[in-house]
Amino acid sequence: MSRRLLCLAMFICVAIMGCATATPDVTGSGSQLQTRQLQTRDYDTLDKAKTMRSVVATLQDLGFTIDSADPTLGTITGTRVYYESDYRNFTMRMTVTVREQEGKRVSVRANARLDDKAIADPRTYQDFFAALDKAMFLTLQKVD
């Protein structure tokens, strides 16, 4: 009987403590260089204003609502929710920054979190940049 109780207690402890971490992730995880490489693309086709226009169009296209945007600093933040089933909704928040670089280059960096976790999955950034490439091309071709 006492063995059963012990196992039950262990089960409850594991279920409760399953994903607990000792300290909050204040400074982020992962390598700084690797993270930047994954999240950044350089373009030399459009200026900063037109690139920001393309970023807004891309975020709308991918189902984000725009929370804030600042053309001076070149930042745009949006939110998207993935609905799996009732009460299982996953919120992605993405911030995109557009910066002018030397020459006529513009760099675009996207970083995203899904609920309480930073996204390190390359697929998310690949999807974003694939859609942005298309939007940049359409803007370049003057297609609304």
């Binding site: 196992c7 409850i12 399953g18 991918l62 998207r80």
Partner: peptide, 25 residues
């Protein structure tokens, strides 16, 4: 009880579905 313990481990780390990371246009 071993099975129960394993369930506890899985339940403790409820995973995010892969589709939540995808961004279809």
């Amino acid at each position: 009880f071993s099975a129960l313990l394993l369930c506890g481990l899985v339940a403790g780390c409820e995973s995010i579905p892969e589709e939540a990371y995808w961004l279809p246009p």
